[in-house]
């Protein structure tokens, strides 16, 4: 149970960063932390103590492996997060080009 709690705290750390930081890059990094917390949670759900890696080899039966599906899911979600992070970094660079700053309190041409 403790590991899940720690995982949840990591998620909250990411959320805290997104809410309180003013720097675009720090917001992107906080999103990364949040994403890792979610991924860690998925991996933990598939964990079985004492089990081995889920690769089919000679003389290995599926019973003694950890659950491979969360690992596949995490791989997919890492790819998605890579895409989103690249997108966000590109947006941040273009915003810097326009406003000459990364500070979100100075980037507010839109109101409401």
């Amino acid at each position: 149970m403790t590991v899940y709690l720690l995982c949840f705290i990591l998620l909250l750390v990411g959320l805290y960063g997104i809410i309180t930081k003013r720097d675009l890059i720090k917001i992107i990094l906080s999103l990364g932390i949040m994403g890792y917390a979610a991924n860690l949670m998925l991996i933990l759900f598939g964990y079985k103590s004492g089990a081995i890696y889920p690769i089919l080899e000679k003389g290995v039966t599926p019973e003694i492996m950890v659950d491979p599906l969360p690992q596949a899911l995490v791989l997919t979600s890492i790819v998605i997060e890579l895409g989103i992070t690249a997108m966000l970094v590109a947006l941040a660079v273009r915003l810097f080009e326009k406003y000459k700053t990364f500070d979100i309190t100075k980037i507010r041409r839109l109101s409401g």
Binding site: L11, L15, A38, M41, P70, I80, I84, L88, L95, I107
Partner: peptide, 23 residues
């Protein structure tokens, strides 16, 4: 860019919530 950044950040937060729910 500003609107898109805002959308992307909020959309990603909700996506992570959904991922946790899926887990």
């Amino acid at each position: 860019f500003e609107a898109s950044f805002k959308y992307a950040v909020m959309g990603s937060i909700s996506s992570i919530l959904i991922l946790v729910g899926i887990g």
